[in-house]
Design a protein around this nucleic acid. Sequence first.
DNA 1: TAGATTGTTAATCGATTAACAATC
DNA 2: TAGATTGTTAATCGATTAACAATC
Lengths: 210, 210
Amino acid sequence: MKKVSDAVIRRLPKYYRYLIELEREGVMKISSGELSEKMGLNASQIRQDFNCFGGFGQQGFGYHVEVLKNEIQSILNLDKKHNCIIVGMGNIGQALAGYANFMNEGFYIAATFDVNERLVGTTVNGCKILALDEMERFVQENVVEIGIICTPEAHAMEVVERMRRCGIRAIWNFAPIDIQLEGVTVENVHLSDSLYTLSYRLSEQKNNEE
Amino acid sequence: MKKVSDAVIRRLPKYYRYLIELEREGVMKISSGELSEKMGLNASQIRQDFNCFGGFGQQGFGYHVEVLKNEIQSILNLDKKHNCIIVGMGNIGQALAGYANFMNEGFYIAATFDVNERLVGTTVNGCKILALDEMERFVQENVVEIGIICTPEAHAMEVVERMRRCGIRAIWNFAPIDIQLEGVTVENVHLSDSLYTLSYRLSEQKNNEE
DNA sequence: TAGATTGTTAATCGATTAACAATC
DNA sequence: TAGATTGTTAATCGATTAACAATC
């Protein structure tokens, strides 16, 4: 199968959100035209996107909302359970541990780790915090697919390397570094980058008003 | 000035991060070629990007790290203080309130709000939580540039509308809805979208290995 | 059958990359 | 002056959009 471009992949969760919403509203079918209006995308683009993965529609009719939703859920691999671990249980780590939403879509925080001895042993948002030194053993004894990095910048790279060594192949990174590692899929979040772009557009807006 | 594309704007914080790093390492000058290797970008692209905002380099020499860093800081509007408020002090809201990093770059959490009576009046990460009903008054009495939305999906749109009405022109949105509003600049974060794309790429990786 | 809407090919647009003249 | 590297124009590439034949 031809490689699907990143732009398409990043639209999939958005389709998924809108389809869940439509299903909740009891809508049974939708055309690319209607969906394009709702989502602010081009109808051609929507059809092109779906056709990267096969034809989910019916000519002359449109798309069955439930079918399409299930297809995208399956493409995104959200119909399977994924064990995660969090390393770094500061503010962000604790928040993600409590982000109950994840479990609804098959993400489960199997364990959390920190180096801070005052945190180790405590329970936050239902997750017990273990000593970082126990990570390797835990990952060997349990199936862990996703490593979530919420450490300060200084420790992030070392944790990434340790995760890779014990077989974790997917990393969700919240530390402000760009991780690129052979054989490991990384999604960098970079919250501050996001805020900075907002700051840019705010000042741009002000300039236009002057 | 010609409108700068979103792709360029999203690279600015990344340049900024690398330049801060270089400055910290004591590097005085850098060429687009060296920077491209470090950042994994194309050198032409880097020069094109910088030239959207004017020529910061010196032919035959390269770029002064400090000068370039300061220019980008100024373009991103990070050399000014920005008051923010957070609405919704659940896990994510609390985490962002404590994300001390923001203040370093001029972002300051002036107040936080919630509807939950058990939270109102308490102090989290140094931020006192006020009742949501006090938001309008607070914004009128203080200069607030950025509204941060961390409410559940169901309340997000109403909060956005209230923020707009009391004059907030920039919104950093963590609720899982796409906000688009005339006259308001919105940066949608969508953490679960990000995790879903990681999930997709993880399954793709597994398929390739088979 | 006629109408609607998909799936897919072709055209357009914008972003990335290459090339090179300008110049420090 | 010669060498290096920018700033900028031109070429390429990929993503988006338009068009339309296929078909339900």
